[in-house]
Amino acid sequence: MKGAYELTVQNKRIHYQFTIKRNITVIRGDSATGKTTLLEMIETYSQNGISSGIDLKCTVPCIVLHGGDWKQRLSYTHNSIVFIDECNDFIRREEFASEVKRSDNYFVIVTRDDLPNLSYSVEEIYGIRMSKQYAGLKKTYNEFYQIYG
């Protein structure tokens, strides 16, 4: 995959909007900013589609990768954005890094760990924050911000 991909994920209460620009994006930051909630919404949508009540807009498929079968799932995932939540220890393995290097997917990895086996831009390390533009509305609007920008 090449280029940037805009994603919008929302339900009745929460709205996320952000752009993924490179093959590896890292999300980190304080606890309780909505990182895991974002991934849970993406996974629920990928399993249930519009029946989930979640609205996900992106021009490529989005999936959430976790657990012991990560390598098998990755082997049949192409031209997609692959999200991985924190505390999945496989992301630190060389085996994972080599799979990423030869993959045609983009990866969005939630982690505070250093990932010495993966090369990614410091500009692609983001946190999640509530958008000031929509502050005060009943629905919570979230956006990415560059941590080292």
Binding site: R28, G29, D30, S31, A32, T33, T36, C87, R112, D113
Partner: peptide, 29 residues
Amino acid sequence: LSGGVKTLILMKYDDSGNIFNATACGDNC
């Protein structure tokens, strides 16, 4: 609950002797 708070609660109350990964917690923890 957030992963950070879950981990804090384990640190406070779990008496199994397990050692928990504090990297599940953000700096606000």
